[in-house]
Design a binder for these strands. Sequence first.
DNA 1: GAAACGAATTGACCATGGTCATGTTTTGCG
DNA 2: CGCAAAACATGACCATGGTCAATTCGTTTC
Lengths: 191, 191
Amino acid sequence: MTEPVQRRARATRANLVAAAESIVAREGFGALRVEQVVKAAGVAKGTFFAHFADKDVLMEQLVAKRISRLLDALQTARRPSSAKGLAATLGPIVELLTCERYVFDLVQRASLADGPVAEALSRLDLILTGWFGGLFGAPPFRTDLPPKVMAEGIRAFTLMAMARHVANPGKGTNPGRALAVHVEAFLMPPE
Amino acid sequence: MTEPVQRRARATRANLVAAAESIVAREGFGALRVEQVVKAAGVAKGTFFAHFADKDVLMEQLVAKRISRLLDALQTARRPSSAKGLAATLGPIVELLTCERYVFDLVQRASLADGPVAEALSRLDLILTGWFGGLFGAPPFRTDLPPKVMAEGIRAFTLMAMARHVANPGKGTNPGRALAVHVEAFLMPPE
DNA sequence: GAAACGAATTGACCATGGTCATGTTTTGCG
DNA sequence: CGCAAAACATGACCATGGTCAATTCGTTTC
C-alpha cells in the first residue's frame, strides 16, 4: 500500500506490476483479474491488497504510465496552429483512453482526484497552457482568457467527446471531430 | 427486461420499483443491495434480473425520475440573465447528481448513451437551447454560436465541475462557482 | 376442460473484488 | 547472538452482482 521498505516486498510488488502489465498487454485492461495477477506473480491474494488498496490503484498506475509515454511525444511536438490541429494532436491520447470502456471509466473517476492519472493529465494541462502562451494569450486562439481556463475547457470537451464515443460503441462516433467543433467554438475568437 | 405483458408480472415489477424507492429514500442510492430489494418485494433474486438487465438499469430509472422532477421546476423558471445566474439555476440538479459518488458515476456513464437518464438530460438541453434563443442568439450570451453547441458546452462544464466535486470529498470544492467561471468564460462574448 | 406453449419465477450456483486473523521473515537493539 | 517488534505474506472466508436449468403459472386452441 505504502512504498515497501524491505527488498523482499519491493520484489513482490515489482512482480505484481510485471504480471499485470503482461496480462494487460495480452488481454487488455478490462480483462485483468486479480486472481490471475497473483497467480502469475506467485503470491497470495491478500498480498495483492497489501500492496494496492484496491484493483483500481494498480490499474491507474498502469494507465498513467501509458499516458505519460504519449505525453513524452507530445512535449516535443510543435504547437498546433488551429483548432482542428489541436484536436488532432490529442488524437493518440483520446485513442488510448477510449480503447476500452473500462479504461475510460477509470480515467474519468481518477482524472480529478489525487493519484498518478491526475498527475499525468495535469502534465497535459501544462503542455496546453504553454501552447496558449503567457498572460497575454497567443493567436490564433482567444487571447482574453487565462491559459489555465482554456486548458480546463479543452479537458472538459475532450472528456465529453470521449464519453460520447465510449457510450455508443459501434455507432461510428468520432471523438476527434466532435472535439474539434467545441474547441473551434470556444477557443477561437468569435467573429 | 422488456415490458411485462401479464398482470402478475406488471405487479412484480411495480413491487420491485417500490421496494427500491423506499430503500433509496431511507438509505441512499449507493446503499441499495439487490438482495435487499428482492427480499422487500418478496420475490427471488432471479426475478429481479428478469425485469432489469442489471442493477444499473433500475438505478438509472430511479435517478432519471428525480432529475425529471427537478426539470419540471426548471421549465417554469425565468431565463437567467447572467452566467452566474445560469450556474445558480443548475444548482438543484448539480446537488442531486453530486449527493453521492455512486449517483454521479452512474449518471456520467448513462448521460450520453441511450436510456432514461440521457433522455432526462436531453430535456435539460432543450430548455437551455430555448434560453439561448433562436438562430440569432440571445444577449447577454454570445450570439455567434448555435444554441446547441452552447448547451453542449454547458453540459461539458457542468460534468467537469461535478466530477471535481465528487472526486474531492471534504475538500470544500464548490461546483457552482467552478461552473460559473467556465460559463462566464465561454458563453459570454469576450471583451 | 385438457393439451400445449410461452411467459414468469425460482433458488442454487458462480465470478470476482475485497477482508482479516494468523503465520513467517526481516530488522533493530541490548 | 538472542529476542522482541515491525514488516510482510498467507489463504480461508465474505459480500454482492449476476446466471441459468428447472419449475410453475397463465393463456390459447380445439
